[in-house]
Amino acid sequence: MYDKPKILPAGDRAIVVEYGDEISEECNAKVLNLCNFMKNSKVDGIISMIPTYRSLLIKYNPLKIDFEKISEYVKAASNEKAGEYAFKPKVIEIPVTYGGEFGPDLDFVAEYHKITPEEVIRIHVEPLYRIYMLGFTMGFAYLGGMSEKIATPRLETPREKIEAGSVGIAGSQTGIYPLDSPGGWRLIGKTPVKLYDPKRENPILLEAGNYIKFVRIGPDEFFSIKEEVEKGMYQIKTYEYIGKR
């Protein structure tokens, strides 16, 4: 992490506040705290923000607020101890059915590491995964925290269509496909929960700074949850994050 955040121009309507050149929870927390601080301060002229691993992009209307003024806010946020405006993370439970037609590459991942599919599942559901940021496509979360014990290279030839909700591994990353799309991740499971649902009040489920907990469910439960999701009846379980367990 840098001693002081770098403020870089991203054109005439945005700045980037960069806290470091690394992927770490500490650096990412600074980004999210500033994002939260700016949101809570309801600064006139701020259009929107994009928090990423180590920087916050702030879009602003220069006819309403100037570069100097925004820099003052950034300094104020950096000088204060992240207390009342600190981002308060939640844990979001994502039910996943592993293996079989739900996760056609589970056996491959197990063989690759010479462990059983059950062990892969156990290792995968174990951690709380931090959502560092969203990007790449709508609703796609960059997660941190997967064990290297199940890190597996991508498919040599990507699949043409992967259904939304598929849970996969690519190198040392794990992730969930928010939309039907082509892709080369090793698919180990699938969630009936919709990461993107235009009919929902908040169409995109995940948010940077929160945590994901994968919860293993069986195929029967997959279909019963799926039905509830379709009817708009399914309540996603969330609770306050109280540190790593």
Partner: peptide
């Protein structure tokens, strides 16, 4: 770079 934010025009 470490993936970061993009604005139209970048």
């Amino acid at each position: 770079i470490i993936t970061d934010g993009i604005v139209p025009g970048a």
